[in-house]
Design a protein around this nucleic acid. Structure first.
Lengths: 114, 114
DNA sequence: TTATATACCTTGCTGTTCTAGGTATATTAT
DNA sequence: ATAATATACCTAGAACAGCAAGGTATATAA
């Protein structure tokens, strides 16, 4: 990424899952799509992405299938499973809570939660 | 913390620095203050905090002094230096960009950045 | 007198990202 | 034709941050 690598930790999985919510994608495409959607802020490295994909598939959160591109090149597409969708929902909720917590601390601690 | 530990990575330093922007504090107090300001969402562990403090002091971002509490116990207070303030400002800017980037990806990539 | 709260610290584990490689095919430039 | 680049997948090892679990010591509460 372009900034403190640490910030990315913990969000990488969520970002990947969220990409697959809209459409099946292959790895290389996810990197491009992540850059596009973030205005080039997120430039995920392959060494980061592929281990994430393999782990999620191993845990049953993603399913993969091979499909030939019009060019003739073979691509490995990933699809979000029901379990993956549940994981995404959980990560998203965690992210929102975290975001709120950080902003609350940064602003001195006066946030009115519920 | 209460959630995916990974999310914390990269933010710990910023949160600590931001606490010290308002007032000098000692370690134990920072943990309590962080919990208070975040409605108990952030329960930073001592094994996380002390290495952060030592690193920031080593880098000249914090300065420390010992002061006796009314109870007789000695406390080690930390003060934000000018260099620490600059670091905080940078971290804050990074955090905002990151936050915006994540939300942009989560919402499909349509954010209008300036 | 024992347990808990306060207050500081460190070592080693784990998990996540990145670096830096490797393989192979398709396209573009020379 | 040949070289360079883009596409597309992968992995091993380094680096780093947070955590668990320990240690030390004093003050307060049971």
């Amino acid at each position: 990424m372009k900034f403190d690598k640490g910030l990315m930790a913990g969000s990488g999985t969520m970002l990947v899952l969220s990409l697959l919510e809209g459409a099946d994608m292959y790895g290389y495409q996810m990197i491009e799509e992540l850059a596009r959607r973030s205005n080039d802020l997120f430039q995920m490295k392959e060494g980061t992405l592929y281990p994430i994909l393999h782990g999620l598939e191993r845990d049953g959160c993603l399913a993969s299938y091979r499909q030939e591109a019009p060019t003739g090149r073979e691509r490995k597409y990933y699809r979000l499973t029901r379990k993956g969708k549940r994981l995404l929902d959980g990560k998203r909720a965690e992210w929102e809570a975290f975001q709120q917590g950080v902003d609350s601390v940064l602003s001195g601690g006066a946030s009115a939660l519920a």
